[in-house]
């Protein structure tokens, strides 16, 4: 098997970065997330390939937090769009865990299927290669196995890394994977490596039948109780590897400007507020319910898979201790017709 020795990891990242923007999990000051290898500062930043989940997911690489869409020139009655900003520059997400890979695959369903291809997403994704990092020891908040993710064999990865102690087993999974492998072929060694033992999941979550059961629970009183602590801060949607909702806004300086999109959140009142003032989800509970139904029911109905990937980030960041695992449990236990 092909192995990338850990001693050659930095050399590999350097080499990959010659032609690609390489997003790597790292601790950077107070933040952890996927940042570009070129921005890595020796002695200050810390590579986080061993961590299960850094604070921010790598979705930024394919759906930037803000993204320019097109230019606007407006002079009197004349208006022009001179330029659109589809960006297909080559990027690599290096070391993504299965849950985060699934987040991107779910976004592929949204942005690239059902009649319309989003040209901005399509461009970024066409230039993007995913090098996944298989998980052998789930963390305290991990439950991807319950959400149809195989963290040992992440579907959609172009290369899968397996941490074998002093090196990573390097498994090529696609043509894109072949192409990036060729860039560092001289750093890979052909040898045997012992893979780690697969450890059990600590979180026990049973999602089976939940999507189907939720279909008849829209008006169930459990939403009142479950949503009570929620302050609609939106942190869960911000750190979520699969939350993809976006807003489109404009920035003008006099006659020139551009339209851009930015991550949005179903937690915010403005998200669904109509110009006339009406809002189908004006109440906090309604927004809370929307988020969990989208994750656990609606997305599965539409695309055949849940939109929660079991990464556990929202459990960690929620300031009011709302826990999606407990919500799944509550749905499981709920009596219908209550």
């Amino acid at each position: 098997m092909k192995v990338l020795s850990k001693a050659k990891l930095e050399a590999a990242l350097n080499k990959l970065s010659d032609r690609n923007e390489v997003f790597v999990p790292m601790q950077k000051g107070q933040q952890s997330g996927y940042f570009t290898w070129k921005s890595f500062e020796n002695g200050q930043d810390e590579l986080m390939l061993d961590a299960l989940n850094v604070y921010q997911s790598p979705k930024n690489a394919v759906l930037p937090q803000t993204e320019k869409m097109y230019s606007i020139k407006s002079q009197g009655v004349e208006v022009n769009i001179d330029q659109t900003y589809e960006d297909a520059h080559p990027t690599i997400i290096f070391g993504a865990r299965g849950c985060d890979v699934k987040g991107i695959i779910a976004m592929d369903d949204v942005f690239l299927t059902r009649g319309y291809e989003d040209s901005f997403y399509k461009a970024r994704r066409s230039g993007n290669t995913i090098i996944a990092n298989a998980c052998y020891e789930p963390g305290a908040n991990c439950f991807c196995n319950a959400m149809e993710v195989n963290s040992l064999e992440p579907v959609g990865a172009d290369v899968i890394l397996r941490d074998a102690g002093d090196g990573y087993v390097w498994e090529v999974k696609s043509d894109k994977g072949e192409a990036v492998t060729a860039l560092i072929a001289d750093l890979l060694e052909e040898k045997e490596a012992k893979l780690p033992e697969v450890k059990p999941f600590i979180q026990k979550v049973d999602y089976s039948g939940v999507a189907e059961k939720l279909k008849s629970m829209f008006d169930h009183p459990l939403w009142d109780k479950l949503s009570q602590p929620c302050i609609n801060c939106g942190m869960c949607t911000y750190v979520c590897p699969s939350c993809y909702c976006f807003d489109i806004q404009v920035k003008m300086w006099g006659e020139e400007g551009y339209r851009f999109r930015a991550w949005d959140s179903c937690m915010f009142e403005e998200y669904s507020r109509e110009a006339g003032g009406g809002n189908p989800r004006g109440a906090s509970k309604e927004r809370f319910r929307q988020r969990f139904l989208h994750k656990l029911e609606f997305f599965k109905e539409r695309y055949g898979t849940p939109l929660c990937t079991g990464c556990g980030r929202c459990i960690i960041v929620c300031p009011t201790d709302i826990n999606i695992v407990r919500i799944i449990d509550a749905v499981k236990e709920a009596e219908i017709n209550a």
């Binding site: 949204v110 942005f111 059902r114 009649g115 319309y116 989003d118 993809y244 909702c245 976006f246 807003d247 489109i248 999109r261 949005d264 179903c266 998200y271 669904s272 507020r273 109509e274 110009a275 189908p280 929307q290 139904l293 989208h294 029911e297 609606f298 997305f299 109905e301 539409r302």
Partner: peptide, 16 residues
């Protein structure tokens, strides 16, 4: 309320 018009941006859903 709609932003994208093509089923991507999220906000205009009712159920799925």
């Amino acid at each position: 309320r709609m932003k994208c018009g093509i089923g991507k941006c999220g906000r205009c859903n009712i159920g799925s």
